[in-house]
Design a protein around this nucleic acid. Structure first.
Lengths: 321, 321
DNA sequence: TTGAAAGCGATACCAC
DNA sequence: GTGGTATCGCTTTCAA
């Protein structure tokens, strides 16, 4: 390539990588830089990582369905933080690939670390990734996976907080909205379980309420709520809560007097409703924090897998409960 | 590697790639497959694309700020469609990189095609990508870029539709909400311009209204609206519309009688407000369609750059206008 | 039907 | 200081 600019490729490599051990004369450096710019030279990541035996790629599977606005904000923060540590963050769009296939598709890129949200991987998957050169595998999900570091997003706790809050406010017949949309079970099931646990051993009851993300479904569910005699509902997140709350109001149900409603995720829009929507605010770990964990794991691949619970959940009471 | 399983690496390559021209004996194939599974062998994408001279990677820069829920749905559809055509979709998290730097970071991965949303690239950028082996560069944005195929997201039209609608409903003093959050200008500026164009030469006036995504900002703006004597507002999208509408209502403004409000993007949540929010529904091209365009461009890199306007905008009148 | 060997681009070591 | 050269994992051509 740019050795057409007068020098050998080795020299080019030295110059462009600013190798400390070897000193190149200033005129030569300039010639190389100029030639590079002129030819629009861009190093070949594949060749480099082939030679080096590893890449600086941190791979994340792109989620099949956006879990909510929270996630994309979080993702950007994380990308920024990893970028500062000189990693290249890459989201792999493996829609339609499952389990093993997906893992192999990720492994082909030989990422130095893999960040898996949800439940997209098992112990064998982790092993495949590690054998293929990944120095760190980090899961972000409800439970740890053997061999991988775990950031435990304890959604069970979210449900527990909501359940305890409603019970403390005197509610006994509690419904829990679970999205019908598939791909959200990883989050919604633990939230439901959390409510159940909060009410276990009390006189409260918990009813699962499937809800599709559309108005007809909400109208049907509102009607069903009436029949069930519920006095409170915890919805998967604020969007589903808004949907149901509207339908209940249209049915003449007074909120919170007859039925209390609480959501989760603390979206801006929940504050706009009347009554203002109570919610469970979720604290995700900062991007910095996760980025540092990844970096530590990469530098020290032998270390024991860390397991950290990283999801703070606090009830924000507004007017709907 | 798996040649420890009895055969040469060439044979392995044949078997795993199902090469048609060479036939391998069935027992050998089995031995190779078994060994591969046992060793957890995964081909090395870098080595392959180094040798082949090209990859199957379609690269998209990950947007710094999610333009809305519409986008993630669209992205998934696109990823799925490209996956079916055997491309590997990769979102490059280049937060903090600008212009040229970002383009070079993308080029390092030697993608076969690059899909750039927004205004993230200029003609020189396209040239760099092409020199580095990209067989297709496609922009999704307001205006075409030399050398690249363009899917013209004509946000000007969105604003135009909204402006024309409001004017037709008898409104004359029209405010246009523009997000204060940076990164959204690519979408918001053309929408504002569209309203201006729709009202050019009439007795209507257009006022730009900056709005941050929070309640205090909305309250301030609501007050300002009163002073300006506006009788209609077109908001950047439904979320900003909801925010402002709530603030106006809290100020005692009757909607739509005193002030009409219309948003854009046709989000589910807009229907839940009272009055139901009017909106400009946006038709994005199907993932299939864009995937086919990319595939055509890759197969036939010499062809002239296609320029297609791919954004349908229709006013959905509900109760707020 | 299989094996040997060249070569993709970048790098690191070793001579000059 | 600088220029050859072997090397990474894989595909492909050529020979056997």
């Amino acid at each position: 390539m740019a050795r057409l600019a007068g020098v050998s490729r080795a020299t080019v490599s030295y110059v462009l990588n600013n190798t400390g051990a070897v000193r190149i004369s200033e005129p030569t450096r300039r010639r190389v830089h100029e030639a590079a710019r002129e030819l629009g030279y861009v190093p070949h990541a594949a060749a480099r990582s082939l030679r080096a035996g590893h890449s600086r790629i941190v791979l994340m599977p792109a989620p099949a369905i956006a879990p909510g606005p929270l996630y994309s904000r979080y993702l950007n923060e994380l990308q920024w933080a990893l970028g500062r540590l000189d990693y290249t963050v890459v989201q792999h769009g493996n829609v339609g690939l499952h389990g093993d296939e997906a893992v192999r598709a990720w492994a082909e890129l030989r990422p130095v670390a893999v960040l898996v949200p949800g439940a997209g991987i098992g112990p064998e998957g982790v092993a495949v990734l590690k054998r293929s050169g990944a120095r760190a595998v980090v899961t972000l999900g409800p439970e740890p996976v053997d061999g991988a570091h775990a950031l435990l997003m304890d959604n069970e706790r979210v449900g527990h907080r909501a359940g305890a809050h409603l019970y403390a406010r005197g509610r006994r017949r509690i419904g829990v909205v679970v999205p019908e949309e598939s791909g959200l079970e990883i989050f919604s099931r633990p939230r439901l379980a959390g409510v159940r646990n909060a009410l276990r051993g009390t006189d409260g009851t918990v009813t699962e309420l499937p809800l599709g993300y559309d108005e007809e479904s909400a109208a049907r569910l509102a009607e069903r709520c009436r029949g069930l005699g519920l006095d409170a509902v915890f919805a998967y997140n604020d969007e589903y809560a808004m949907l149901l709350m509207r339908a209940l109001q249209d049915d003449g149900v007074r909120i919170p007097e007859e039925t209390a409603v609480i959501g989760a995720d603390d979206l801006m829009l929940g504050r706009l409703l009347r009554p203002r929507l109570s919610t469970v605010h979720i604290d995700l770990p900062s991007g910095r924090y996760v980025a540092d964990l990844v970096d530590r794991a990469v530098r020290n691949p032998g270390a024991a897998a860390e397991r950290l619970t990283v999801l703070g959940a606090t009830v924000v009471q507004r007017e709907s409960t």
